[in-house]
Design a protein around this nucleic acid. Structure first.
Length: 930
RNA sequence: GGGCGGUUAGCUCAGCUGGUUAGAGCGCCUGCCUUACAAGCAGGAGGUCGCAGGUUCGAGUCCUGCACUGCCCACCA
């Protein structure tokens, strides 16, 4: 590999691919992120968090990448700050998703899961998992996620499964799990019940059908309205409102159900709203949740007319065997033919679809297991209301609470094969249902031995809800649980706020809350609060938004706008992709992911790379002794160690670095990733590279006759500052920082990884505001001259003298002391500097600022017209500003109420602007502007 | 029907607790192959902060209304 005489083997161009895979492998192989539990008391601060387990079937998408980037930044930051840090990874067995995936595979072989049978099918799923289940974690590795791979889990692991059974049994013992026949959301495609949350409602244009039912023993009809005429085959009543006078005369009558020729009663029920439709409604207890409740109130029979595939069954008489949608057409045609269909109107209906399959969900009467949620919710509300769990952004607290206040019982049984099987057994002799931790051998009631386990499995989210404690060893009282629970933080997307976050809170606060010991009342309260506070699954939740495409569209396969993070990574590198996400991750706002942005951050990485090459070039030339003189990583985290601030730019950059470190720490504290990332970017590129490196070049013996000692100091400073900057950057860009950091130590670093070095904290002693002010003046001067050169079209190679007028002696001496830098062709590129005693502001080719006037002495006819336009624009703005300032300063209450610094600042600014106005005017006169 | 957001430069977005001249990236214009980097350097153009009121000495920032727009929740046939 041509190294171009470059030391430390850094190739000329930044190539992320090679370095990233190497370090990802190294980190995992060296087990750098393994958090071993300390044997006794917590000597260090602890920081723990759980990776939201991706589905084993999953492929990494931008949402994952955002989530993991944010977690990794926080985790690396904590680890570098010396916390005992645990980031726990794992995958979720994802019941329906995985089962569907394997069934699809079977279908290609012309088989169904029923052909295999339950046991063989499950065996097959395990095979599938073994073969493909690691893909998503492999992808995670490429992101650089600093998880504890030694603790990786799978939700179907034996220990986790045992914990799930334990929870189920305990809840059942506590009367919080019950079984019963209710209307549930049924997906005919998946063949299972699903929870309310798994139903997505969609507004669609539908129809409202008016159907008349003949009243028995009269010539009258009663007309009902429905959106689902096919369910009338299961009608068992018609309801009217008792207060609805239109129907008073029909109270107690029967109607004949058309098509089925069955007599059903007219009942009085609140279900019927006199305001809606005809005020009369058909009641189908087996196919509608409201009708189901009404049916219970009136003791109505429940006639289920569909099977589990949503095809009409024998109860549907002549319609048996038809699909529900075909049945609708047939029913309508028949009603029409027989004169029962009164009208069809357009109507917008909210159609529930299965989240997973997209099939229209059927409300179906079936026997299911439920969690009685209210007691759990009560506690989950309490801990959030009391602030024991903090939400960021805060508005999610409201959203969470609103949901929790209106929560319904949770249907947890699924008619699937893949998942945690419900630990309930039914006695074949007496029908008794037993819930037990271990397979019972005989019936607890009749002693019979013909026991069959419930065929259902649990909702995947049931086991996920337990992860914060089960992954730490619960129900055993483990050391891990003691140390790492409650976890410190959860970072996740709002899409699983209810599915997962809310349920973890409910389960955590329920199972990690020790039983109350009866004690004296006062003591009890205090310890109760303490226990409650420590029962939460996490102390903080950070909710991030959605990653959209560059046009703000939701990424979806059908739209074809899905950005594959791996592709972006391959193009620009992981570091640049991470940086993009971090820089755009303002709390509470969606991220419009634009790869052009990533290209920009790849360029930033390249900038870092080349700055490193520059540094090494000097280290090798000036002597490695200097570079190694201090061992910054060992010197602690306060400021920059081993830095000798001798010049203005030294004092300035040191001060800026410490300011940035303070800012970054504060920003990360509040999950303001974008502020942290942008601040580092601006510092490294805009200050460190653009100004500092350029300013020290003369000292680094670039110039003839430079002083060797000064060069060594400058080089040492460069290394020290660079090393500290790498640590600051590392949480966001782990790979490139690791690469350069090792190169700094020539492959023999004091620690195995920069990830184990200290994160920079601000050192107040290294903050030097005076140098920052001085540097600002110097920069202002240099930029002014560059400005003038551009305006006057001075040839790049031509130098001209400048005159400077400055009243304040300290400004003059500042300029005097930095004369060399100003003269340099890297900076102002001027021939000479002369101080004059009179204002220069009104001269053409001059600039006036608060601290100085500068005049570029260059004879070139300037573009008068263009200059006039520019001056006029300046003038207008100045006059506006002065007018504003005058208005404010004339205002007594402003003078009385505004802080003195604001008033003083405004006065000064006004004075300066007035001066400028005069000068601008005279300049305009001089040029002959009108 | 409830609830939560968004509207700032041509595009995509920042702007924390109200304070002196509203920022960035990309794009655009001008000039530079200056030996770390053309994935770069220097300079520049571009904004009545959705509209209308209000609070305040002072509003992009707080309040009210409106318009447009997105999302979540909800068993109204």
């Amino acid at each position: 590999m041509p190294t171009d005489n470059m030391p430390h083997e850094l190739p000329k161009a930044y190539e992320p691919g090679a370095i990233e895979s190497r370090w990802a492998e190294y980190w995992k192989h060296e087990k750098l992120f393994h958090a071993s539990t300390p044997p006794d008391g917590h000597a260090r601060n602890m920081f723990s968090l759980l990776l939201p387990p991706p589905n084993v079937t999953g492929r990494l998408h931008m949402g994952h990448m955002l989530n993991q980037t944010e977690m990794d930044i926080i985790v690396r930051w904590h680890r570098m700050r010396g916390d005992l840090t645990l980031w726990l990874p794992g995958t979720d067995h994802a019941g329906i998703a995985t089962q569907m995936m394997v069934e699809r595979q079977l279908r290609t072989e012309g088989k169904s899961r029923r052909d295999l049978g339950r046991e063989a099918f499950i065996e097959r799923v395990w095979c599938w998992r073994k073969q493909y289940g690691g893909a998503i974690l492999d992808q995670m590795k490429r992101l650089g996620a600093s998880v504890d791979w030694e603790r990786e889990y799978f939700t179907m692991d034996e220990n986790l499964s045992r914990a799930v059974r334990e929870v189920f049994v305990r809840l059942h013992e506590q009367g919080l799990i019950y079984r019963g026949k209710y209307i549930v959301n049924w997906c005919p495609d998946c063949g299972t019940a699903i929870s309310d949350l798994e139903v997505k409602h969609e507004e669609v244009a539908g129809k409202l059908y008016e159907i008349r039912y003949p009243v028995v023993g009269s010539k009258e009809f009663i007309t009902v309205v429905t959106t689902r005429p096919e369910t009338m085959l299961g009608d068992t009543a018609i309801a009217v409102n008792a207060k609805d006078e239109r129907y008073t005369h029909l109270h107690g009558k029967m109607v004949m159900l058309p098509l089925m020729n069955r007599e059903i009663p007219i009942i009085l029920d609140e279900l019927a709203n006199p305001e809606f439709g005809t005020g009369a409604v058909k009641v189908t207890p087996a196919h509608d949740p409201n009708d189901f409740q009404a049916g219970l109130r009136h003791n109505l029979p429940q006639i289920d007319v569909m099977d589990e595939r949503a095809q009409m069954n024998q109860n549907a008489g002549p319609y048996a065997g038809l699909d529900r949608f075909d049945a609708r057409k047939r029913v309508l045609a028949d009603l029409e033919a027989q004169g029962f269909l009164v009208a069809i109107k357009d109507y917008t209906i909210s159609l529930g679809k299965c989240d997973r399959s997209g099939t229209v969900v059927e409300p179906r009467l079936s026997e299911q297991w439920f969690v009685k949620i209210e007691p759990l919710a009560k506690r989950a509300i309490e801990v959030v209301e009391k602030g024991y769990i903090r939400f960021t952004p805060e508005n999610y607290k409201t959203i969470y609470l609103n949901w929790m206040y209106n929560i319904h019982d949770w249907c947890i049984s699924r008619q699937l094969w893949w998942g945690h099987r419900i630990p309930a057994w039914r006695c074949g002799d007496c029908g008794e249902v037993m819930v037990a931790r271990a397979t019972p051998t005989k019936c607890t009631k009749c002693g019979g031995a013909k026991l069959e386990q419930d065929t259902d499995v649990l909702d995947t989210w049931f086991s996920s809800a337990l992860l914060p404690f089960t992954t730490l060893g619960w129900p055993e009282a483990t050391r891990d649980l003691d140390v790492f629970y409650p976890t410190s933080l959860l970072i996740t997307g709002f899409d699983i706020l209810f599915f997962w976050v809310a349920r973890m809170i409910m389960m955590g606060c329920w199972f990690m809350m020790p039983p109350e010991k009866p004690k004296s009342p006062g003591e009890k309260t205090a310890s109760h609060e303490e226990a409650l506070r420590n029962s939460v699954p996490f102390r903080e939740v950070y909710i991030h938004a959605l990653v959209r495409d560059a046009e703000r569209q939701k990424m979806s396969k059908t739209k074809g706008n899905v950005l594959d993070p791996i592709e972006v990574i391959e193009q620009y590198g992981t570091d640049a992709t991470r940086f993009t996400l971090a820089a755009m991750a303002a709390p509470g706002t969606d991220i419009a992911f634009n790869p052009s942005r990533t290209e920009g951050y790849r360029n930033f990485a390249n900038k870092i790379w080349n700055a490193a090459r520059f540094m090494f070039m000097n280290v090798d030339r000036i002597g490695e002794v200097v570079a190694r003189a201090s061992s910054p990583a060992e010197a602690g985290s306060q400021g920059v160690a081993g830095f000798k601030a001798e010049t203005l730019e030294d004092r300035w950059i040191l001060s800026r670095f410490n300011g940035v470190a303070a800012y970054v720490n504060e920003a990360l504290e509040e999950f303001r990733f974008h502020e942290a990332a942008n601040r580092i970017y601006d510092f490294f590129w805009g200050e460190f590279c653009d100004w500092y490196i350029e300013l020290i070049k003369p000292r680094l013996m670039f110039e003839e006759g430079a002083d060797t000692g000064a060069a060594q100091v400058a080089c040492g400073n460069l290394v020290a500052l660079f090393e500290a900057s790498l640590r600051l950057l590392h949480p966001v860009m782990p790979f490139i920082t690791e690469e350069i950091w090792h190169a700094i130590y020539d492959g023999k670093p004091p620690l195995k990884s920069i990830a184990l070095a200290a994160f920079p904290e601000s050192n107040p002693k290294q903050i030097d505001l005076q140098s920052e002010t001085q540097m600002a003046v110097l920069q202002d001067l240099i930029v002014s001259v560059r400005n003038l050169r551009a305006e006057m079209k001075v040839e790049p190679k031509v130098k001209a003298p400048i005159q400077i007028y400055a009243l304040e002696p300290e400004i003059r001496s500042l300029i005097e002391q930095n004369r060399g830098a100003i003269l340099s062709d890297r900076q102002a590129n001027v021939e000479s500097i002369t101080f004059v005693e009179a204002s220069l502001a009104k001269l053409a080719g001059a600039r006036h600022t608060a601290r100085f006037d500068v005049h570029l002495m260059y004879e070139q006819k300037i573009d008068v017209a263009a200059e006039c336009v520019r001056l006029k624009k300046d003038l207008e703005k100045l006059e506006r500003d002065v007018a504003n300032a005058e208005r404010q300063l004339g205002n007594q209450s402003f003078l009385a109420k505004a802080p003195a610094s604001v008033v003083e600042g405004l006065r000064r600014q006004k004075r300066e602007n007035q001066g400028l106005i005069e000068k601008t005017k005279s300049k305009m006169r001089e040029l002959g502007c009108n």
